[in-house]
Amino acid sequence: MLHIKCPHCGLRSQNEFSYGGDATIKRPELNKEISDKDWDNFVYLRKSPRGKHLELWQHISGCRQWIKVERDTLTHEILKTLKANEEI
């Protein structure tokens, strides 16, 4: 079970969190022209790197905040955790 440091609550076990996938994907702005291709890329394409992965978790059984976690997908080592509004 992973041990994730919630930037709001501190170190907690993984079972308090739920996973939210790739955190590097930016939702296109509302009401802005966007090509089909760019939109589909946003909805469907994922880099899924082997190694460092910036991803979202929600502290669902805690503060309910979405947080960003930099984790190594090969070793599961967590390198950094950030608040939703922080950039790596």
Partner: peptide, 18 residues
């Protein structure tokens, strides 16, 4: 399982997560 790793070498991004 490793498709995304090879895709990266090909400059491709795929609708896949590992």
């Amino acid at each position: 399982g490793n498709t995304s790793v090879l895709a990266e070498m090909l400059n491709m991004t795929l609708p896949i997560e590992t």
